[in-house]
Design a binder for these strands. Structure first.
Lengths: 206, 206
DNA sequence: TTGATTAGGAAACGATTGTTTCCTATCTCG
DNA sequence: CGAGATAGGAAACAATCGTTTCCTAATCAA
């Protein structure tokens, strides 16, 4: 299937080669979707942000929905790519969990917080009547939940997290917490507020 | 200013009297907005759901945005009206907090969960470029946070919640948790999953 | 009654939407 | 080189959007 993820080769074949980097264009579209959501982002907005005419965009994407789906996938991948080194920098499970919660808090305040979360936009605007979109939202949430559960398990193995606590319920509760951080951060709270909330939630692991 | 909230009198004055109950119409519009969000809900959708022609709707509301704002206010009021008796049924602060978290969990699964939350829709779709909408979202979140903080304080007073814990940080963390329940519930998790997450979060008060 | 006023509703409105068309430019392949 | 194929981009496209108009119906004040 699609192996196109990031920095894939410009593709070899006949015809005039593409003059823009699809990932760069997608990063620009991503910002528009995050700020405006799906429906309020017009093709005009996307065209201006991507620095491409509508005609060129339609050569690369089937329709507006396809742009959003591609931006969505890229957004999810980028978030995890940004998070990973923060997790790697921590020694034990608890430290990694703290890093994860703080990552969400750090990206949920002020300017970066007001730029929204595509997962939440997709859930609110499209998931109800678009099964494929709903499946992607579910998968994106599941991915975070699984990561949380794995980190809890790791913490229990290395002794940094109490062995007694329910991994599944705790992972789900923390999943809700981080998604809530994104919601609350959309209307602009201070960094200190968000960090304090995340640190307070961390006490579920004490 | 507007004192129109619920079950206000049909208004006295000259001219043909209104034939529909604005609150009933608003309840119907509310469902459309919850399922589709703001932009994807067309006036045609609203007209059909409200059982009114567009012309009649525009007699009662300035524009589509005004319908959403009215539906938003009504949604927030209705949610608190549904929650209040559950709080009243509990004796101490901890019981009330448990009731609040479970109320969010109970309304965040399956059909009722897939119907979304207007606060989140408003935040994701409108708040970025509509200051008045952003203010309403902020106020709605603040109202829940304040309620949580008050209930924590009450619990600390009656001894059902540890006196040592940080009221502000805990209220904010629980606010994020319940908003996260609404996000996750949008793509349909089981009742058991949501209740378990809420109950697990409740251990922040132990 | 009569006049003023407002609601209900069908139809029409201009604007904007997402999308396509068409022409030119640039590449690969033989 | 020439044939085929694809990208870039301006302009045109049909459809849908939110909104208004206009006419009739129902009410209140006098």
């Amino acid at each position: 299937m699609k192996s196109s993820s990031s920095t894939s080769l410009p593709r070899r074949g006949p015809g005039r080669p593409r003059e823009f980097d699809p990932d760069v264009a997608l990063d620009r579209a991503l910002l528009v979707f995050r700020e405006r959501g799906y429906h309020a982002a017009s093709m005009g907005d996307l065209s201006a942000a991507m620095k491409l005419t509508a005609g060129s965009i339609y050569k690369a994407f089937a329709d507006k929905r396809a742009i959003f789906l591609a931006a969505f996938d890229r957004y999810v991948d980028l978030r995890h790519a940004q998070l990973q080194p923060l997790l790697d920098a921590e020694r034990n499970g608890f430290g990694k969990l703290r890093a994860l919660l703080r990552f969400y808090a750090e990206t949920s305040h002020d300017l970066e917080g007001r730029r929204g979360c595509l997962v939440i936009s997709g859930a609110a605007e499209l998931a109800t009547f678009d099964k494929e979109m709903a499946a992607r939202v579910t998968a994106a949430l599941q991915r975070v939940e699984t990561l949380l559960r794995d980190l809890i398990g790791r913490g229990q193995a290395d002794g940094s997290v109490p062995a007694a606590l329910d991994r599944n319920a705790t992972a789900r509760a923390l999943l809700c917490l981080v998604q809530g951080l994104r919601v609350v951060g959309k209307v602009g709270r201070s960094r200190a507020d968000m960090i304090a909330a995340a640190d307070r939630a961390l006490q579920l692991l004490a």
